[in-house]
Design a protein around this nucleic acid. Structure first.
Length: 586
RNA sequence: GCGCUUGUAGCUCAGUCGGAUAGAGCAUCGGCCUUCUAAGCCGAGGGUCGCAGGUUCGAGUCCUGCCAAGCGCGCCA
């Protein structure tokens, strides 16, 4: 209906232009929106006000001309000029019944659209370093990315979900060294653990598994391991220098093959865990893309060659730099270090070249907000590679600050003191976690109160929406228990009997659902959908309390049952996009 | 110091492309279970939209300055 009105208005504008009431070259952006108040009708446009200046006319007079030129439409029963020049549209209430019919007919398909027109979009999200289990910060990115991907798919985009596995680089080396040291401890060696190593209990688990599988293949005496290492921080040294030396020692003593085995033991174990964790959280990927493979396939080299050929690289201080500052970045960035190793950024350039080569129409990266400073250099890289930087949308997710009631929960990955996503799921369940994360605008700071999310009370918003669904299911169970028949067609034929205020409110809200899905998707804002679902649930609860559904009058009863069946369907469809379950009883 | 983000009710947050009297949940207070699930409903109170200017028919929304908070400013990832 909204689009229909926009079309009608556009045609009215064309008429005015033809009549000379409006200059032909005036650019017109027709906007129709839902009204906030019943007395303003169902839809409104500010068109007359926006055009008043160009038409050199009083907005209200212009509004009259627009209405005069407006083609008729059967569902449009009244137009009105209000306030400074709004045109309000009143829709025949019967037109709202169409939604119920449509919802019951379309079922799970209701709300899907073709706004994306089959354009392909890659959504890369979570992409946490496989150096330990996912924590609650990653959970927000997972819930958000997954919902955005679902929404985009629902409005007709071809969505490819991808996880970039940072299986290369210094942090992974530190993990490998940490695994090896714990392994040596399991073998009975006594040696100090680096202050900068990964201290989590999971590292011991990996070491134990490694010992079981490889026995003493990687055993070296502690004295040999520690010999000549620079001191660690507690001994007055530098923890970074120390840990790098430990890594080098591991590589030296184990040899390339042995080191790779220890390294992979850590990588595979953690990656499997992450994969399982996300799977249980309802987060799936089409591809897990390995950073290491970019180096191994020479893709990094090729990317750098491309940049060099187009004159975007230069050498300085023994390193190779990418002149990103010429393309909007703050400063130039190193891609090959003095020691000959490529940087993480070099891999990322290759990764984005690969994404471009795969031909996606649009790229979406979902990152932690602490990486925002990284955006200009990646866009610069895309431009330098000959791509279009506007194809890339980086959506930032703020880390949630965890609370237990009033108390802030401290977290640190290195020390192993953090709340994992798995712990969160075990405590509050997948549904509450998914819903809670989706509740807030993603780039906004968020207080995540574990006590609130764990509470099984009405403070917890997810139950409110689920309860609405369960209540409707319960009504249908009651219908069966009472042995009453249900006739969907009879209900459809009696829809015009739904005249109560609660009923017309629900009809309007139901008809909004496809618009909400579309705007949530295009704005990458699942929280709009969440708020809509809460509103729909609230109206259902109010209706439930105000009116009896299982009434004697079969026509009215069936009409009401059709209405709440439609509500149930929309709740289910919306919750599915968020990967939150819709229980039939609670 | 520079850059990015944020500042809305006691608390947590919505507010679409600048639109009509700024909303919701929680908390507080007062009501509603003989009736399809009270994990619910009905009602009440609660606001200098950080501050000050500007743009215009109209600003929580756009611009400038200031104040405050968070993050980022590696040959880490």
């Amino acid at each position: 209906m909204k689009k229909r009105l926009e079309y009608l208005l556009q045609s009215a504008i064309d008429t005015l232009k033809a009549q000379g009431d409006l200059a032909a070259d005036v650019k017109v952006d027709v906007m129709v929106e839902r009204t906030h108040e019943v007395r303003h009708g169902d839809y409104a446009t500010n068109l007359a006000m926006t055009l008043a200046k160009a038409a050199r006319a009083n907005p209200r007079q212009l509004a009259e001309k627009i209405i005069g030129a407006l083609p008729g439409h059967p569902a449009l029963v009244k137009t009105e000029i209000a306030g400074p020049g709004f045109i309000n549209f009143f829709i025949d209430p019967k037109a709202q019944f169409r939604s119920v019919r449509q919802i019951l007919e379309d079922g799970r398909e209701f709300g899907l659209s073709e706004a994306g027109a089959g354009r392909s979009v890659m959504v890369e999200y979570v992409s946490a370093n496989p150096t330990g289990p996912l924590h609650v910060g990653h959970g927000r990115g997972a819930a958000y990315g997954s919902a955005v991907a679902n929404l985009l798919a629902a409005v007709g985009f071809k969505v490819h979900r991808e996880y970039y596995v940072n299986d290369a680089g210094r942090q992974m080396d530190i993990l490998a060294a940490s695994v090896w040291l714990r392994y040596l401890e399991e073998c009975g060696e006594v040696l100090p653990f680096p202050s900068n190593g990964y201290r989590g209990e999971y590292v011991r688990d990996i070491a134990q598994a490694l010992l079981k599988q490889a026995c003493s293949d990687y055993l070296h005496p502690a004295a040999k391991v520690m010999e000549g290492l620079p001191p660690d921080e507690p001994q007055g040294g530098d923890k970074e220098i120390h840990i790098d030396a430990v890594v080098a020692r591991a590589k030296g003593l184990l040899g390339p093959e042995g080191y790779r085995c220890v390294f992979d033991a850590g990588l595979h174990s953690i990656l499997d865990d992450i994969r399982k964790d996300l799977g249980e959280f309802g987060v799936e990927y089409q591809e897990w893309f390995s950073e290491r493979s970019l180096a191994e396939s020479k893709a990094v080299e090729r990317a750098l060659d491309t940049l060099r050929a187009s004159g975007h690289l230069y050498e300085k201080d023994g390193a190779v730099w990418f002149a990103s500052s010429q393309l909007g970045d703050e400063k130039d960035r190193v891609v090959v270090r003095e020691n000959g190793q490529t940087t993480y950024f070099a891999s990322d350039i290759a990764y984005h070249m690969d994404k471009l080569d795969r031909g996606f129409d649009q790229l979406i990266n979902i990152w932690g907000a602490d990486h925002h400073g990284y955006i200009p250099r990646v866009k610069a890289a895309i431009a330098a590679l000959g791509g279009d930087p506007s194809k890339l949308d980086v959506l930032l997710v703020q880390f949630a600050v965890l609370f237990r009631g009033e108390e802030k929960v401290q977290m640190s990955t290195r020390s192993g003191e953090f709340v994992t996503l798995r712990q969160l799921r075990n405590e509050v369940g997948k549904d509450a976690a998914r819903f809670f994360y989706a509740l807030r605008k993603s780039d906004q700071h968020m207080d995540f109160d574990l006590r609130l999310a764990t509470s099984k009370t009405n403070e917890n918003p997810v139950y409110y929406v689920q309860y609405a669904h369960a209540r409707i299911c319960s009504v249908f169970r009651q219908l069966d228990e009472k042995g009453l028949p249900r006739d969907v067609v009879r209900g459809l034929n009696h829809l015009e009997r739904l005249v109560e205020a609660h009923e017309t409110a629900l009809l309007t809200t139901l008809s909004r659902y496809p618009e909400v899905v579309e705007s949530s998707a295009l704005q990458h804002a699942p929280h709009h959908l969440v708020h809509y679902l809460r509103e729909l649930a609230a109206e259902l609860h109010a209706y439930y309390n105000a009116h009896q559904f299982l009434v004697e009058d079969a026509g009215l009863r069936d009409a009401r049952l059709n209405l709440i069946a439609a509500v149930r369907q929309v709740l289910l469809n919306g919750l599915r996009l968020l990967d939150v379950s819709a229980p039939e009883s609670m």
